[in-house]
Amino acid sequence: MPATASFFTDLVRTRHSPRQFLPTPLPAMDIRGILEDAQTAPSNSNTQPWHVHIISGAARDTLSNELLKAYEEDQTSPDFTSDYGEGIYRERSHQHAAIVYGARGVERSDREGRTEVIRENLRFYGAPHVALLFMPVLGDGVRTAGDIGMYAQNFLLSLTARGYRGIPQAVLGVYADTVRKSLGVDDELKLLFGIAFGIGDQTSPMHDINMGRIPLQQSVVVHDTPGVLDNR
């Protein structure tokens, strides 16, 4: 394997989503470099539809407090649904939740403990920075959301390459109106999700959770491409 391919393989396969960060802010030039890396993402007809807000410091604290208030008052305002259906996708979501709560030692019957996990999410797991990813509504929005997904992956891999960590947070999109109001964002821009980022707290049991991935045979079908899915 060429050295460059080996580097990328190591990079992409070691990227993970920690759920606890150190409060140490990242250097401004590193954040700029990460944004420049993310900006190279492909997009449909080069539309580059991402609108990104980076929040830190007092702005981060204010938004977190407003999100917690919206959560306590059950003031949700999602721009997009979060329906996993009734099949395998819902099962995987339940497995994910069991791993997260289990790592925190929270039993299924511990209602307050489970609520605190949600609060930690809205505190951005202690991360000093958050990227909020907004999108314009173009057609049905599917291609635009796909473009922003590629932008986000660039962002996450650039973090990893620099020794930092990030975690996508779909829950932030559940409170889209709260976020827009806090940041002064136009209602026409829809909040897809956010990415909390910084230096992962390696002493935390929440840092190295391994969610696992399904085998290729469960997600890939090959046509006239022999050997790809052979057992190794």
Rank of each mutant, 00 (worst) to 15 (best):
82 S>E: 10
73 E>N: 15
86 E>K: 08
40 T>I: 07
12 V>M: 11
171 V>K: 02
48 Q>R: 14
151 Y>E: 02
149 G>P: 05
229 L>Q: 05
159 L>V: 03
208 D>S: 13
151 Y>K: 00
36 E>Y: 04
35 L>A: 11
116 E>V: 10
34 I>H: 03
6 S>I: 12
149 G>A: 13
87 G>T: 10
166 G>S: 03
13 R>P: 00
134 F>A: 12
11 L>E: 05
185 V>H: 08
40 T>V: 09
25 P>K: 06
139 G>S: 12
134 F>K: 08
137 V>G: 05
131 A>P: 11
145 A>S: 12
124 F>R: 02
103 A>P: 00
67 L>A: 07
178 T>R: 02
131 A>T: 07
222 V>M: 13
56 S>D: 06
36 E>N: 08
78 P>V: 07
148 I>K: 04
64 S>P: 05
107 E>D: 12
126 G>L: 04
95 Q>E: 15
167 I>L: 01
147 D>I: 04
193 F>V: 00
168 P>N: 03
81 T>N: 09
153 Q>D: 07
216 L>G: 02
137 V>L: 14
168 P>Q: 07
87 G>V: 09
16 H>E: 01
4 T>E: 15
97 A>C: 04
175 Y>C: 00
99 I>Y: 00
133 L>N: 06
96 H>W: 04
196 A>S: 15
144 T>F: 04
88 I>P: 01
130 V>T: 13
121 N>Q: 10
41 A>M: 05
17 S>M: 05
74 D>L: 06
30 D>N: 06
37 D>K: 01
16 H>F: 13
92 R>I: 01
151 Y>S: 00
228 V>E: 08
41 A>C: 07
191 L>M: 14
232 R>G: 15
15 R>N: 03
143 R>H: 10
34 I>Y: 03
60 R>Q: 13
101 Y>D: 05
